[in-house]
Simulated scan of single mutants.
Amino acid sequence: MPCTAWAGRVMRSLRGDHLLAQLARFALVGGCSNVGYVVSFMAVSGIGPLAGNIAGSIVSTAIANELHRRLTFRAAGRVRWFTAQWGGGGLALAGLLISTGTLAGLAFWAPGLGEAAQAGAVIAIMATVGGMRFLALRGFVF
């Protein structure tokens, strides 16, 4: 199959409303919102890294919620902006609390874990929280 035909099939698939298309768009939106986080962090980090982190988290969450409303779940016609921000923001906060608590528990129960194992645990935790957020956004917010 020529590359252009394959790319066309992928693009048509991404435009669909099925679960895998939404999940792919969810991941793409996550990447875009991370760019917003970095820009916001850098703009505010002169005050301090905590201020940069807070600003980056707020901006990236707002960007992600709006892009999920418009692109990932195509819910702009049925879910208002404030509802998306409130629901998505609440889920982002819950995810932050879950991931922070899990990482704190990991440090407590496995203090001698090597760096590679810690990195693997972080990836697994964030993937799990991201998957739960996707399902909650899909099922309850949008």
Rank of each mutant, 00 (worst) to 15 (best):
G131F: 03
A119V: 08
T102I: 14
V59Y: 07
L103Y: 15
V122T: 09
V39W: 09
L103M: 12
N65L: 05
A124P: 14
G46D: 05
R133Y: 11
L103S: 10
A84S: 12
A43N: 00
R9T: 11
L67W: 07
G131C: 02
R70G: 12
M1S: 14
A84W: 04
G105P: 08
G52L: 04
L28S: 05
T100D: 14
V122F: 14
A92D: 13
V129C: 03
T100E: 03
A124F: 08
A21W: 03
A5K: 11
P49D: 12
R133A: 09
P49V: 14
G90H: 08
R74V: 04
I58P: 06
T102G: 15
L20C: 06
G31A: 11
P2R: 13
R25N: 05
A75D: 03
A51G: 00
G130T: 00
G105V: 03
S57Q: 11
L20S: 14
V141P: 00
L137C: 02
G139D: 00
G130I: 05
A121S: 09
M126R: 13
A76M: 07
T61A: 09
A75C: 00
Y37T: 04
A27T: 07
G8D: 15
A75G: 01
H68W: 05
S40Q: 04
M42C: 13
G8M: 07
M126V: 15
A76F: 06
A21F: 06
L106S: 05
V141T: 01
R78C: 08
M11N: 11
M42G: 12
V122W: 14
A107S: 06
A104H: 15
I63A: 13
M1G: 08
A94D: 04
A64W: 01
G90K: 01
L106F: 05
L67P: 09
A43H: 00
W109M: 13
R15E: 13
A136I: 02
A84T: 13
T128A: 09
G8A: 15
T83E: 08
G36N: 04
A27W: 03
P49Y: 15
A43Q: 03
L97Y: 10
L137V: 00
S60L: 13
R9M: 12
M11W: 13
G105E: 01
G114Y: 10
W81R: 12
A76D: 11
I98L: 10
S13D: 06
Q85W: 07
A43F: 00
R69L: 01
G95N: 01
G139L: 03
A21C: 05
M132I: 14
A64Y: 00
T102N: 10
